[in-house]
Structure formats: C-alpha cells, structure tokens
Write a protein that binds this DNA or RNA. Structure first.
Lengths: 206, 206
DNA sequence: AAAAATACTGAATATATGTACAGTATAATA
DNA sequence: TATTATACTGTACATATATTCAGTATTTTT
C-alpha cells in the first residue's frame, strides 16, 4: 500500500464518516461540502488517487459507487458505534482500520455537539484542564475552530491535542495546559499544518 | 413494527446482499435486475412500503439513499436514563427528586462496571487526576471499596470525592489529588462517616 | 361490498451525479 | 531540468437515478 497524503486521508476519513452516518457513500459534491472544496473535480482527483493507491474502489458510472477496501464487516455497524483511535503519529490514517482499537456504543446526541470518533490521549500536555493519559476525547471532525477551542491538530508528522489560538493570518499557536510544556508556534506558510477536529467532550473509564 | 410480506422480505434481503457485495445500496433498477422486476416502480413501491413499516429509511432525492434500520440493536444496546445529581451537602438523600438536575441517556454497559447515577463535581480537590469542576462522575453505589479507589463519601454534613485509604480498622484517610488540599483523617468511632459509592468513570461535556 | 394494500408493467421526466475538459499553482521525483 | 504528482477552481454535459403518472390485477382489510 502506497503512502497516503494528509488531504487524501481527509477524503478517506470523510467517506468513512459519511458511511457511518448515512449508511451509503458520499457523492463528489458531498465530499466537497464536508471538506470545503469548491469544485467536484477536487474530490474526483482525490478519489482517483485513493483508488490508484488501493485505499478505495470506484465503480465507474455508478452514483456513490465508492467502497473502502480492507475494512471487513463495518457495514452492519450500528448507528451509535463510534471508533476509538490512538493518538497516531507519522501521518498514518486516523480512521484506518488498523488504528481502530475498539468501538464504543454511545448515543449520538451524547455530547452537546455531534461527534465522529473517540481519540485516546497519550501524554499529559493538557493535564491542567483535566485531560489525562488514556482519556477518550470525543472528536468532531471540523476545521472550523475558534480561539480557545481544544483542537486535534497535525503539525508535520505529529498529532497533538492543544488549545487553539490564531495569532495572525499566518501564525497559529498551539498551547498546552501544562507548565512543563511550551507553546508551539506554527507558521502556516512554511509548515504542514492541519486541524483534524475539535474536542466536544471527554470520557474516562476507571 | 408491522409485519413484512414475503416479497418485501425479498427486497430487504436484496438490499442487504447488495450492500455486502458492493459496499453501497442498490438503485431501483438494481433491485429490479436482481429480483426480475421489469419496472423500476415495482422496486419503488416496495421500498415505500418497507419505509412505511420502519425497516428502512429513504433519503429523498438522493441516489442510492437507502439505509437499513437496525432494530436488533435494541437487544444489545440497552440504554437507560441516569440521573445527574449535584454534590449535595447536609446529609440529604443523594437521589432525592429535588437533587436531580437532569437525566442522561446512556448505555448501561458504558463503563467497565455498571453504575447508578452521575455526580456533578464541585471544586478542584481532585484536579491532579483530571477531575474538574462540573465533570460528571459515574457513581456505582457500594460500600465495598479498596484502597486507592476514588470514592464518594459523606463525613458528617459534607459530601466529597476523594481517594480512599484505610489506615487501621478505625481510621480512614480521604486523600485529595491537589496539593492545596489536605488529607482528611476520619475516626470511624467518633465521626458520622458513610461511603456513598465509588467512581467507575467520568464524563465531560465541553 | 367498498376501500385499501399488495404486486406488478410501461412510459416520462426532472435532477442528481460522474466525469471530461480547461486552467493555475506548488511540491516531489527522476 | 523535465516530468509527474498533488491540489485545487470552474464550466459543461451525458447519463444514472429517483420519482411521478397511468394502467391492470389480486388479495386483504374494514
């Protein structure tokens, strides 16, 4: 399996989430709407790339003819079944089958906002706001975040959970809630940065 | 759930089989091809009947917008309404009606152990283990607790959440997880002390 | 006995959707 | 350095598809 780019991963995740939510795959237009593209051809080219790399198959001439390859029996998945993924590094697929440690059955109106998956936290960079190792953060996939939101972000190869602060059009600061850690200043022009989503809740099992 | 006819069952099976095979739902024409119908309207009317009876849902105006409604998850996913109570003082009954702020619908196998109610946390005495103000602790009512358990205990008029440590047959220590607070030494012979239950999990809504 | 549901054929149509074509721009690779 | 891959916007169009309308016939329900 060839390596996937971060944008292609977003498209792949988008398909999986759409499937979980609706029971059928998205159209090109649906993907554009979800990810903010303005031309259906943006989705089309990403889909072709994903097909070429073996992540999906596309039935030619068929509406919504997308199927994700490798995932065994996710079709019978209940509406309220949410995947739990680890805090994966190195740009590896967030919602890819191999990263899903378990699934949790949970009402989809459980938190104030709807959400897409649980992220298992590693490290203590947000301990001062009560986010501890192995806690499960309910993550809503979005890139519409505000200053002060707890976001799941990828900077180069590293995925982290931090407070989001936009300092200027080109500068974003990722702030930990732990004095042992330092703020991360992101130069949007020269660094590969992407907001995966934001935290809408937390779950801990003793 | 109303009863299904044999032809409607064939259509429902056809949808499931098509889903298993391709990863996306069939069109009306696909169903006709599979079952030998000669008009797409044959499939259409069956689909409408299945929708009316609650077996499937159909997204209007959407190609392949069929999803099978899983009613068998009622067997595995037993949800219950759990009360949320505040950290009430003055020995008043924890689950008394006037203390219930709201209820939360939650699967009863949600945490590793079963539980009885959610307790809304006040104060920061357990902040170092990530229990923050307004967090909801899933409480299992029991007095069988072990050293190191996070317990909900009442000492005289005060209800608190602390670590439990039995020091001797007659002495129990309640330990906070916050250096600004001090351990509470409880003399079981001379103080009114009672274990309400223990924490089996935590829930936070952002 | 009348009404409603079931079970179809067949034709027609608005629109939902895939997909090609024409561009622009940057990064990665050979 | 040339080439390929990535990452888009924007327009256009053929066709895939849902959906309505008009019928016919049988069975079930009221």
């Amino acid at each position: 399996m060839k390596k996937i780019t971060s944008q292609q991963q977003r498209v792949l995740d988008c398909i999986q989430i759409y499937l979980n939510k609706t029971g059928f795959p998205p159209t090109r237009a649906d993907i554009c709407k979800e990810l903010g593209f303005k031309s259906p051809n943006s989705a089309e080219t990403h889909l072709r790339a994903l097909e070429k790399k073996g992540f999906i198959s596309i039935e030619s001439g068929t509406s919504r003819g997308i199927s994700i390859i490798n995932n065994d029996n996710k079709l019978t998945q209940a509406d309220d079944e949410y995947p739990v993924v680890g805090l994966v590094a190195a740009g590896s697929p967030t919602l890819a089958q191999e990263n899903i440690e378990q699934t949790i059955n949970c009402p989809n109106k459980f938190f104030d906002s709807d959400f897409d998956y649980f992220l298992k936290v590693k490290g203590l960079s947000m301990k001062d706001v009560g986010i501890m190792e192995d806690d499960l953060i309910a993550v809503k996939k979005t890139n519409e975040v505000r200053n002060g939101d707890i976001v799941i972000a990828r900077l180069e190869d590293e995925v982290t959970v931090k407070f989001f602060q936009r300092k200027s059009p080109k500068i974003v600061e990722l702030e930990p809630a732990n004095e042992d850690y330092e703020n991360i200043v992101v130069d949007l022009e020269h660094q590969d940065f992407h907001i995966e989503g934001k935290s809408v809740g937390l779950l801990r099992k003793n």
